[in-house]
Design a protein around this nucleic acid. Structure first.
Lengths: 116, 116
DNA sequence: TCAATCCTTCAATAATCATTGAATATATAA
DNA sequence: TTATATATTCAATGATTATTGAAGGATTGA
């Protein structure tokens, strides 16, 4: 992931309807949700939601697949993971202990012990 | 953290100079960096950088403290942590195993085993 | 094929954000 | 007190983004 992709991804998350959608899809997991279900859940017009879904997909944060008449959207866990990793890269370089409260147990900052 | 705060925070990260600043400060750790050093590092004008630093501070992603003539900025690890937690809340509810690639070992999605 | 459902595309408008340079504020040193 | 270093504020301009409603594309069932 480079700076430009990351800016695009953060911009995609920087809008209430879209953030709502991503959080719903993160909860939903692999199964995902149909565009219509998302529309009901977030209360947007269908054209507006479609615009936002396209932004999110373009940013690499969600995927879509057709299932009969519906289009099912799901979170891209890879995309989200890369984004967080980019943001927190080399966290507290040389002094990882200060990142503790931020990333205890996480691979994003302080590496986990080998024996984990 | 609520939806509105999260949108503000993501918007703050959705700009190249600001993202650059945050990543530098994440690397710098508690020690932080002076505004002047950030200015040199990111190549912005001082007024422009000041504008961006204010946005980041307002978003709760960085802190500032005065040290003699300089103002030292540092990452808010609490702010970053809350933001990521908000984004990934209830990840894959009911089927946490699918989040594995995303958050293995992290508290953000799949809870760590009790014996960790 | 016809109608219904589900979703997307398009063009126009309204709203928000980034950049610039000049002026200002704060702290230190001579 | 005066000069210097460091950083912020302000107003104006240019650029980007969100929303709306109407029209169009894809899929299914009768």
């Amino acid at each position: 992931m480079d700076q430009k992709q990351a800016v695009t991804a953060f911009a995609a998350l920087a809008q209430s309807t879209r953030l709502n959608v991503v959080r719903l899809l993160v909860k939903a997991g692999q199964e995902g949700m149909a565009a219509g279900a998302l529309k009901d859940a977030v209360g947007a017009s269908s054209s507006n939601l479609s615009f936002h879904l396209k932004e999110l997909e373009h940013a690499g944060l969600i995927h879509s697949r057709r299932q009969s008449r519906s289009i099912i959207y799901s979170a891209s866990f890879d995309g989200l993971s890369e984004l967080i990793r980019f943001l927190t890269e080399d966290c507290c370089q040389g002094h990882p202990e200060v990142c503790g409260p931020f990333t205890t147990g996480s691979k994003f900052c302080c590496p986990e012990p080998e024996n984990a």
